[in-house]
Design a protein around this nucleic acid. Structure first.
Lengths: 180, 180
DNA sequence: CGTAACATGTAACGCGTTACATGATTGG
DNA sequence: CCAATCATGTAACGCGTTACATGTTACG
């Protein structure tokens, strides 16, 4: 069996949370893991088919009125594959962070604009934090590790906001002393 | 002019640091930004051509003996484009973090193995930290913002290691009280 | 009655990695 | 002389996004 993509495991994992449609999967991804693993319909629907063909999930047609609808559930093989993947060592840390990339090249900018870059990064993370906190405030409780990752996200956001604030203060001070 | 890829700006930025070959660019990426923006030869060389055709960089053949070698430098237009991009708002925060994804689905695992997941995450970040600290210890000084991003990386690594340790402790305690 | 939410899908495209291929030069 | 480093490149492939396309049902 060929190696599955990360997104395939996202689907296995979410379907494992309970019978779900492609639409559901997308919604759950958008409400939880999108910040560290996004997924689009363009991937989800084709992937659902592949996973079904591979016997890792099973789809059952359950239309609502005249509206097509397929509910998927995880098979034994599917759960085994999910667990197998979980136990495999994760690939090395590798992110894509455009705002950090810009900061890396900020020596090409006048100081005020470099400062603005950091400010924007902070704003982005503050917005991100607001979303996660709203999620955290929802009634009902998530499984322990789902919750753990949410709280990681919050801690991560707080870390970034604090870091940006510190650098903003430092830069502002330096700029005062030696104005460009 | 069509929008350029993130990697195109990586190249503009690094070429902006001084005349460089494709090989140099790759080395610099690997020694600095690879953790938040990697790049491979498969992208670098074709992209250098495109950027030259767009007039954003200029290549000059400067072979060493019989070995082909092209030195690139940033044109006026190239610098302007780099600055223009820097001033554009960065796209929303979106990362890909496989280890976090696994943690999100860790409720499917026995506690001991979930704990192992966190331990591995910590190990990964510790390794990452070691690399960055070695970079930090190099003689010579980088431009201020290059250095700032390096120090961000270190702070980020420390944050993650601390977070993992905390969760490991918490989980270990919980497992003791109610062993599976 | 209209709009938001539900639901499913495809085609084109771009980005990026991996694997492969080739060869010269430097330093031990 | 041999290994590491310098140096450049291509082809195939996979992943993922975007834009498009279509229609239903629930709710106010």
């Amino acid at each position: 069996m060929k190696a599955l993509s990360g997104t395939a495991y996202v689907i296995l994992g979410i379907v494992g949370f309970g019978a779900q449609t492609g639409y559901d999967i997308k919604r759950i991804v958008d409400e939880s893991i999108r910040f560290f693993w996004a997924a689009s319909y363009g991937q989800i629907y084709p992937e659902l088919r592949r996973l079904e063909q591979a016997g890792l999930i099973e789809g059952e047609s359950s239309p609502v009125g005249a509206r097509k609808r397929t509910e998927y559930r995880l098979t034994e093989d599917g759960r085994a594959e999910l667990v197998r993947w979980l136990e495999l060592p994760a690939t090395v840390l590798e992110l894509r962070d455009e705002s950090l990339l810009k900061l890396f090249f900020a020596d090409s900018l006048p100081r005020v604009e470099a400062l603005e870059l950091i400010r924007r990064r902070r704003l982005g993370h503050e917005e991100f934090l607001a979303v996660l906190r709203a999620l955290d405030a929802r009634p009902g409780d998530d499984p322990p590790f789902v919750d753990l990752v949410l709280r990681y996200g919050i801690a991560y956001g707080e870390f970034n906001v604090a870091w940006c604030k510190e650098q903003e203060a430092r830069l502002a001070e330096a700029t005062e002393k030696a104005p460009a």
